[in-house]
Structure formats: C-alpha cells, structure tokens
Amino acid sequence: MIKDLLSGLTSVDPTDYRHLYDTSTEDGVVPGGGVHVTFLGVSTLLLADDENTIMTDGFFSRPGLLRARFGRLTTNRARVAGALARIGLTDLDALFVAHSHVDHALDAAEVAGRTGASLHGSTSTRRIAEAQNFDPTRFRPIETGQPVQVGRFTVTAIPAQHSPGDLAPGHIEHPVSSSPRLTDLKTGDCYSFHVAHPDGALLIHASANFLPGVLTPFPVDTVYLGIGALGHQTEEFRDAYWREVVEATGARRVVPIHWDNFTRALTRPVRTLPRRFDDFETSVRHLERRCAETGVLLVLPQVWQRTNPFA
C-alpha cells in the first residue's frame, strides 16, 4: 500500500522529452519582431508583438500540495513579483482567465493590478478579484463569441468544458474569502481563447475536454492544448478530443500545456503532475501517434522560453 502511494507521487522529468522542444528560436529572439509566446506553467501564456502584450490566467503562486489540498490559499506576492521580473513584464494590456480554479484565477487580480491590465473573466472570477480588492472598473465580463481587440490581437472567448474529475464544480455564487480553500474556487464558466493576429491564429484550450462542434468555426495554425488528466481517460476519449480540438480547427502545430505540477514553485525544476493525478507518458504517446498520422508538428514548451507560435 505504501509502495503504491509513493509510486503515485512520482512524476516525469520533461527533459526526457527534449526531442520535442521548440527549436524555431534562438535565445528567445523571434525573427522579424513578430508574435511570440512564453509558456509560464499550467495554462499561463504571455503573448506579445512589438506593440501589445496579453496573458492568460497569470498563475505564479503555486502553493505546495498539502496547502493546496487542505489549507487556505492566498496569492504569494513575492513569487508573482519574481516571475514578472524574470520575464521583464511591467505593463500588460489584458489578462484573460480560462476558469476560476486556483491554478487559473488565484493570482489574476494581483498580476492585473501590478501591470495595469484589464481583467477578463467570468462572474466567478470577478468574485475572486473582488475579494482581493481589485479595481472593479478594470474588470471586463467575458461574453462568448464577442471579439475583444487588443492592438493587433483579436481575442474571442469560446465556451469550453472542464476536464473530467472536476474537484470544484459549479459557480461562485457569493462573495469569497480573501484566503479561500481549494473547493471554494469553483470552476465558474469555462473558456477557450481564439487569438487572431495578422501573423496567424492560435487557440488556447486549457482544459482537456470538449464540446462537440464548438470549435469548428475557429480555424487556427496552432493549438495550445491542455492535457491535464488526459492520460487517465480512455483511448476513445483521447481520440475524440483530438478530433474536436485539433482536427476541427485545422491546426498544424500542437503545443501541450497544463501538464506541469503546479504545486512546485517555478524556481524549482519543472516536473509533470504526479502519476496519481495524470499519466503524462500516455498523453504524449497518443499525441505523437496522432501527429505522425496527420503530419501535425508536436512541440513541448519549456517554461520561460519565448517562441514563435507560427514557425
């Protein structure tokens, strides 16, 4: 029993998959000053061109496993400040939150507050921001299907569904504590984000699930594909997920996200989620097979690395 428990807490070193790393840029320099994307763990992504910057989620606190599961949660301002300093981010135009769980929404108000960004999210995300005294005039309720223009970026939120096994389903219906528990931060509305730019189009799909047919009207070059808990689903589910997200959008490049252990600080080496919560190897084998069959490029992102999403 103890052996099984310890085995379930082991994880994968992503450097074992270095053959999937992005080699399109050197030293984080994107040729021609075009769009670049920086993976910052879970589904936190920084997108920028030479004029504007936008971000999804903005989660950097990454509390330890025991605290995340059983304790009260607050933004770790030192970790947020350290992460923003490392990527040199002082000004952000807009921050979009995929849903209201701890690993997406806990730090959003802090990041938006520090950088001057407008904060875009659901009613549940707004309640979290209110508990952190975020300026309500800078909150923007998301309306699915309605494009939001940020410079040359056009961001459209699309209805999505959380991955199977949601630990905190539902909506935050009442004011939330400034130090909530994990289950207080309920999912709320769940979104994918279609981002169009003159350089190309991409989809940020944070949760490993799908709503049939929803993504077909949104063609893209690249999908940032959430794979958290995908390895614990059936092969039939994984095949359907591929069809409804990758094939439906016509993407020719797939970048897995939401696979890292978000209870480890980003100052430590990145590891996958423990095997008790996910099976990273199975997910990657599936993606490698489907990409080989269809000629789609599979790229595993490295934290902090600036890359060209349309290379």
Rank of each mutant, 00 (worst) to 15 (best):
M1Y: 14
I2A: 07
T10R: 15
D13H: 02
L20K: 07
L20C: 02
L20M: 03
V35W: 00
V37G: 11
L45D: 01
L45N: 14
L46H: 14
D49P: 00
E51I: 10
S61T: 15
P63D: 14
L66A: 13
R67E: 15
F70D: 03
R77Y: 08
A83Q: 04
I87V: 15
G88D: 06
L89E: 00
L89K: 00
L92P: 13
A117M: 03
H120D: 01
R127V: 08
R140S: 11
P141K: 12
E143M: 13
G145N: 04
Q146V: 15
G151Q: 00
R152Q: 12
R152L: 09
S163M: 15
L167I: 08
G170T: 03
H171N: 09
H171D: 12
S177N: 11
D189I: 01
Y191V: 06
V195K: 00
A201V: 08
I204S: 04
A206Q: 15
L211D: 08
T216M: 03
P217S: 08
L225T: 09
G226M: 02
L230K: 06
F237H: 10
A240P: 07
A240K: 10
E244I: 13
A251D: 09
R252P: 01
R252W: 07
V255C: 11
P256H: 05
T272M: 12
T272F: 13
P274Q: 07
P274T: 05
R275H: 10
R275S: 14
F280V: 01
T282I: 04
S283N: 01
V284M: 13
H286D: 03
R289K: 07
R289C: 04
V299R: 10
L300V: 03
P301E: 12
Q305Y: 03
P309M: 02
F310L: 00
